[in-house]
Structures are given as C-alpha cells and as structure tokens.
C-alpha cells in the first residue's frame, strides 16, 4: 500500500485522471439513456394508442376500406409466417446441420459465408426478386405462395446459422459415444445430436417467426394486399398482413385509419415480444 502511494503520480494528476474517468462513465450512462428512452416512448405510444383502438370486432371483421376490423390481416400474417416456415425450416435446419457436421469441407465454408452475406441483403431487393420471378415470371400474381417463398428466402440464413451454432454446442464425446455404439452417421446426427440441440434450433425458428411477422418491404410486391379473408388459394389471390395496415393507413387523413394502424402495430409488437419470450424460456431451459 505504501509502495503504491509513493509510486503513484501527484494527487493533482490523479484527481484529473479520476475526473476524466467519471466524465467517461457519465457519458456512457447517458448513451444508454439516449437509446433506452426512445424505445420506452415507442412502446408507450404504441401500447397507449393501440389499446384505445383495440376491440373485439378487430378480430372478427375484415378491413372495409379504411375502417372495419383486421381479421384478414391477422389471418394473412399467420398464413404467411406458416408458409415461410414450411419452406425455410427444412432447408434452413438441414443446411445448418450440414455446415455443423462437415465443418472442414470447402463447400460448408461457402454455405456458411453466403448465409452470413445473405442476412445483409436488403429485404426490398428480395421482394423485387420475388416480384420478377414469381409474381410476373411464373404468373402467380400477388399471392400467398409468392409472399411466403420470399419471406423464406429471407429467414433461411438465420435458421441455418442458429442451427449450426446449436449443433456445435453438442460436444464431440457425445457423437463419438454414438458411433462407438455402432450407430450410423445419420442416426447419430438426427437421433443423438439434433435432440440435444433442439432448443437452440427452435430458438432460430422463433427468430424467423419474429422476422416474418415484422417484415413489410418484401411482401408489398409479392403478397399484395386484400380486404378479404383468405379464400384458400395459394396463387392468383393477394393476401393481407398487419404490417401493410401500419404503413398504408397511417398516411390516410382519417381517424379510423390511424386507429387501425396503431392497433396493427400493437398486435405486431405483441407477437414479436411473445415470440421473444418463448425463445428466452427455450434457451434458459437448456
């Protein structure tokens, strides 16, 4: 103690250094506040205005021009999410397994790299791709299938990467134990490693659900918009979705349109938070 006291700089220099440190801590605390405050305000505004617009008819009636309910949009969002998962889960999970189980192969490296790069492609570019190839190229017009496949393209890389990380978390000893029992490689992967990695894999799928619920740009020119409930067709019929209501109705000069936009935003936020909560419990159980 006496040694450090003798060796330390003059008290004045130390005081200045401590002051600099205090200023630094204050600034970094301030940056937390500067970012937390808008988020709290955002949640408060949407919950407040959304709750005021919430009513049972939102869930039973379809949109009528700029008023009415949101049933068509709620149903459409759910259909699009399920549709995207139908394509994205098998492709994403199996790709992730491949990359995790054959990590040394050059092709796995390429897949991993491309998946990372693809998460950075602007969603509107994917939407345009969907428009060119499916909506006009294949003649599907605005449709559930075009929207779902476009969303799937968007979330496949996320599912693949989270699956890979979850599989890599399972130690090598477990794989070797399986092989030592004479199990085939496929059995080891799908009956031993995958069940162990399941909560991680599911959390990736949940992330994909959250992204799909909140996306707008890739859907506007693939899914279109419909005031009616789903008629059961996969192509040639547009579908509605909640995020469209937020974007379009807030620009209408009518109170009923604004109310619907905030109600839709509340539903979207609630869904995203619910999915996040599910993911957290999944990961904690592990």
């Amino acid at each position: 103690m006496s040694l450090t006291a003798r060796r330390s700089p003059t008290p004045r220099g130390l005081r200045r250094r401590r002051l600099r440190g205090q200023i630094g801590w204050t600034l970094s605390g301030l940056s937390v506040l500067l970012v937390a405050f808008p988020l709290i305000d955002l949640l408060a505004v949407i919950v407040e205005k959304g709750l005021r617009a919430l009513s049972p008819t939102l869930f039973t009636q379809v949109t009528n021009g700029i008023s009415g309910g949101l049933w068509n949009a709620i149903q459409g969002t759910l259909l699009l999410v399920v549709g995207a998962l139908v394509f994205a889960v098998p492709i994403g999970v199996l790709s992730g397994i491949y990359v995790a189980e054959w990590p040394r192969s050059r092709f796995a490296g390429l897949v991993r790299f491309v998946a990372d790069v693809m998460t950075g492609i602007p969603s509107v570019v994917l939407g345009y791709f969907g428009y060119i190839t499916m909506v006009i190229g294949l003649g599907w017009q605005f449709s559930l299938l075009a929207g779902a496949i476009t969303l799937a393209l968007m979330v496949i890389p996320y599912i693949a990467r989270t699956t890979e990380l979850a599989m890599l978390n399972i130690g090598h000893d477990i794989r070797e134990a399986g092989s030592a029992l004479g199990l085939s490689q496929g059995t080891v992967i799908f009956r031993v490693v995958l069940p162990g990695a399941l909560s991680g894999v599911l959390s990736g799928i949940m992330l994909a659900v959250a992204i799909s619920v909140g996306e707008t740009a890739p859907l506007i020119y693939t899914a279109g918009w419909s005031n009616y409930a789903w008629n059961g067709s996969l192509v040639h019929a547009p579908v509605g979705y909640l995020t469209y209501v937020i974007w379009t109705f807030i620009n209408q000069p009518f109170a009923s349109a604004h109310a619907l936009a905030f109600a839709a935003a509340l539903l979207v936020i609630a869904l995203v938070l619910l999915v996040n909560a599910i993911t957290r419990t999944l990961l904690q159980r592990r």
Binding site: V35, P38, L39, D41, L42, V45, I46, A210, V213, G214, E215, T216, A217, T243, I246, W247, I250, A261, F262, A265, V268, I269, V272, L273, N276
Partner: peptide
Amino acid sequence: LAGVPSVVYGLW
C-alpha cells in the same frame, strides 16, 4: 431494440 420491426419504427 433489434426486435422492433422496421415499419413500427416508421410509425413511431
């Protein structure tokens, strides 16, 4: 903050 959809940021 990362989970809030883009269109909701737009609305806010």
